[in-house]
Amino acid sequence: MSNARFQARPATDQTGRPDFISIKNFGFWYGEKKALKSMTLDIPERQVVAFIGPSGCGKSTLLRNLNRMNDLVDGIRHEGDIAIKGQSIYDPGLEVISLRRRVGMVFQKSNPFPKSIYENVVFALRVMGVKNRAVLDEACETSLRKAALWDEVKDRLNDNALGLSGGQMQRLCIARAIANRPEILLMDEPCSALDPIATGKIEELIHELKAQFTIVIVTHSMQQAARVSDRTAFFYLGELIEYDTTEKIFMNPGQAQTEAYISGRFG
């Protein structure tokens, strides 16, 4: 059995709204291809939810729907609804831009802008029109501290961000994603390109960030899911197979497919 993989984690604050993000009967197509079969799940406030499953099963697709990044793709279509705090993200009265300001995102490949470290971090504030230098400075320092990067870069904030190491770049991207204090943080395999030490740092970071943000993380590493998440969703071929507390999924999965996957029999 896979119990050995699961390590005990500190208890989580359960006072948040249980249906902070509410996905209802949501299905999704790229053109003619159905990428997500109708699924329903609620993501509770200030918890970490991990999406796991073999590649191509639709984890990123669902994640990228939470901030409507998939709008960039031509010929997409969805059914059902996704609501954040009860408000549909497809509400015509809601602008995509304001949605994305509430939902930060960290990508699989770190993608800092070819600008200074400082400008990278405050980018989201700049595009919101913040010009006050003190506000920007403050946001820069807070975000970099939260991203556990401040001590490493505080003396070279004006250096080009592309000069950082891979792990530092990814933490910079996290700092950038949280600089405008979003409510939700989406992370799509944030550690897949990093070495174990950098990965450890980021996982620690996720623990700390959980106090303020609702985090959805896609990962292909089951150990990682076990280490960082409160709840885990297992997807297979575009279908949500099982969604429960991480403990339950790893100790006592309800579905045979889930068990097969986490015990490493496929994927």
Binding site: M69, M105, K109, P112, C173, R176, A177
Partner: peptide
């Protein structure tokens, strides 16, 4: 321009 940069900017709420 790498697609990641475009996405990062849009995801940060830039128009």
């Amino acid at each position: 321009v790498p697609r990641g940069m475009r996405e990062a900017s849009l995801a940060a709420g830039a128009s």
